[in-house]
Nucleic acid binder design. Structure first.
Lengths: 200, 200
DNA sequence: TTTGTTTTGCAACGACCACTGCAAAACTAA
DNA sequence: TTAGTTTTGCAGTGGTCGTTGCAAAACAAA
């Protein structure tokens, strides 16, 4: 009996990256299977046999985004320095990444949030869970800062994390609406003026 | 020759309000003509003869939103008090309006921003223009404050207006994701800590 | 009643949607 | 060569999309 079958003519990773860029640019519901197949340079039957259906492909693309181009929300908080420095670095990186010319503007996760409608509740839930994970990363970083006396004990970690996330999500919409990199930079900088005890 | 024809069986304003609520809830692309017609309790032919096509109906619904339920972004800035008071009032009203139980959560204008795709560029432009109008209202209020020595002369009015709008848009996404009214209230309050010279 | 005007109900249009069936193609192992 | 396995190309599925045509219905003026 034989083992290998007909070899596939395309790279799985590359095709997934292409799909991600398309979903990122146009959103889940406005990206058609035929658009995807054409951009990925494969047939729809190959698409289905390789990635399952449209929802699975989207979720896999979303996870690729989170672990790749969108991973800065996690990684920028992990390097050294104070919590304020961490989030300053996060906003700076975000301003840069959200306005790059070689990829869609804005954050794929944020832009996916209001996109779904009836019948797609499962996807809505999946997106929300990933968003919540990101927020939890903020919370954990702030809680650590509190333990390390890097933040005053009276600070509401939950609230501060939410505010920072709110700012970041707003920046995504601004980027999608055409805001410039330098403008986003200044917005992030200004937001950090609300940091507990930020000003002299 | 006769003047009047067959009288219409429905109220134009009421039907438009119904359409607005549907668009607000599900977005432009995910609201079908049949869904609209059924909710408005009219036939599709009546819908087309009364409102033109789907895009015109959406734009009319959007303007109804702006002049009605979404009008607080303008009106709350017009009453007396300092500029800081104005925006504090704006955020408070927003927190209340974005989380009301008797209407869709979030701001219809903000949620419409990332919704459109290829072929709908005209609509995208129309939405962006209305968003820009709103931002301009912020700017004007801040410019007035500067003239009235209510804001220090070194303040970047453009930037502050953008930051406040960014926060408001972020709050819309948070509301859509299920954030509570009191939580949004606190987020708005915290954002205003970034106001020039806000803290003692 | 007749004529003119407007709305209504209903059915249909072509275009697109996500998705699948099927057989030929392209490989590996025997 | 042969048998077994997997992918590919392509056509086609039923369903839904926004939009329209048409004739009957319901009114006002002549």
């Amino acid at each position: 009996m034989g083992y290998g079958g007909r070899p596939r003519k395309f790279e799985r990773d590359g095709a997934l990256e292409t799909a991600m860029l398309l979903f990122w640019e146009h959103g889940f519901e406005q990206t058609g299977i035929d658009d995807l197949a054409k951009a990925m340079r494969i047939s729809t039957s190959s698409l289905y046999s390789t990635f399952g259906d449209k929802r699975q492909l989207f979720l896999e693309a979303l996870d690729l985004y989170r672990s790749g181009r969108g991973g800065y929300t996690k990684t920028t908080l992990e390097v050294g320095g104070s919590a304020l420095d961490s989030f300053r670095r996060l906003f700076e990186t975000a301003a840069r990444e959200l306005t790059r010319g070689d990829q869609p503007r804005g954050c794929m996760l944020t832009l996916s949030l209001p996109t779904f409608s009836q019948g797609l509740e499962e996807l809505q839930v999946e997106v929300s869970r990933r968003r919540a994970e990101s927020l939890d990363g903020f919370r954990k970083r702030l809680a650590r800062a509190k333990r390390e006396k890097d933040l005053p004990p009276f600070v509401d970690v939950n609230l501060l994390a939410s505010f920072l996330m709110t700012t970041l999500m707003g920046m995504s919409l601004q980027a999608r609406s055409g805001a410039s990199r330098s403008h986003l930079l200044k917005i992030g900088e200004l937001a950090l003026q609300a940091w507990p005890g930020a000003r002299p």
